[in-house]
């Protein structure tokens, strides 16, 4: 933590994405960032603070989230592809053992909760599990390390003040990432629901449950009520899926940041300050160990729910 920052600034700095976006014309000349010059020009540029990113709205991209998620995804694919290429019937060793163990585990999970036949579900579950796990894993890297590196690189290559280089290294603390996955899963769910049950079957599922009546007039009254209930429960799936992951990771990251604040105490130079920093170190270790459980669990939950939702989409005769 830099001494010239206040705690609030420090936290805010850590929770801001590195955003590259299209600055609208009407924002030019406004002084959006504290202690920074006003926006000079419109067009595509890096946001200097959260307020500027806000101004860019949808026409922007979180470079750090994209960079890390793609990097980690490539790490996952590279690692597993390497094992897959060498996969033989003979005695496996090292990496292949690990990869096979993970695949076996995913396969068991899929067989446990997914009853229909779809070859896409298991690889998707594998991708979700490992990718989410790796993204969550970035949480365990000391909070200041990668942002500091990014700051140094930013100041060396682009001549920016390192304090204005934002770098959020945990993609799953960005709702864009979690929603991106959950909505993709949701779209697949809709696709398979329509494909398996047909448009009529799927519409019927949304409108004819849970209230039904043999009386046609009464049924007409029930249809909107049913639709409201079923639609909410349908929409709740991707939202809860992504918000659960996002919330857990965001909170975990927040606690790491708060613990990291304690290291700043040492800058006072007093014994008490050093003691506080030491306590912070122990707390960070403890939280990191506990967090190993959380990141794995969240990845597992995301994967399991993905499988379960896909299973629901494949259920033809739904019993209520």
């Amino acid at each position: 933590m830099a001494s010239e920052q206040t705690s609030a600034q420090y936290i805010k700095h850590h929770l801001t994405n590195l955003t590259y976006g299209d600055m609208p014309q009407e924002a030019v000349g406004k002084q959006l960032c504290e202690g920074m010059p006003a926006v000079k020009e419109a067009g595509w540029q890096f946001a200097h603070c959260a307020a500027e990113a806000q101004e860019m709205g949808f026409h922007s991209i979180n470079v750090d989230t994209m960079f890390w998620s793609i990097t980690l995804g490539i790490v996952f694919i590279w690692l597993f592809r390497k094992a897959a290429k060498k996969a033989t019937v003979d005695t496996p060793s090292g990496l292949q053992n690990f990869v096979e163990w993970v695949c076996e585990f995913i396969d068991t999970s899929v067989r446990g909760s997914f009853t229909a036949k779809n070859d896409l579900v298991a690889p998707m579950a594998l991708t979700v599990f490992i990718w989410v796990f790796l993204m969550n894993f970035m949480d365990l890297i000391p909070v200041d390390l990668l942002p500091w590196v990014a700051g140094q690189v930013g100041s060396a290559l682009f001549g920016v003040d390192p304090h204005h280089v934002y770098f959020k290294v945990v993609p799953s603390t960005d709702p864009n990432a979690t929603f991106g996955m959950s909505i993709a899963v949701f779209l697949l769910m809709l696709f398979y629901s329509v494909k398996i049950k047909g448009v009529g079957g799927f519409t019927g599922e949304l409108t004819l449950h849970p209230f039904s009546s043999k009386n046609p007039i009464l049924m007409l009254v029930f249809i909107p009520i049913n639709f409201l209930l079923e639609f909410v429960s349908l929409i709740a799936k991707p939202i809860s899926l992504s918000l659960r992951l996002y919330g857990n990771m965001y909170a975990g990251e927040m606690i790491f940041i708060l613990i990291a604040l304690m290291f700043g105490l040492a800058e006072s130079g007093t014994i008490l300050g050093w003691f506080g920093a030491g306590v912070g170190g122990i707390m960070q270790l403890g939280w990191a160990i506990f967090h190993i459980l959380i990141i794995t669990l969240q990845a597992f939950i995301f994967m399991t729910l993905t499988i379960v939702y896909m299973d629901m989409a494949h259920q033809t005769s739904e019993a209520h």
Binding site: G57, S60, N176, F179, M181, A184
Partner: peptide
Amino acid sequence: NFNYTFIGQMITFAVF
């Protein structure tokens, strides 16, 4: 805030 990252993540996810 939601932005292109969201769409980018969907595409990335689909590709992976």
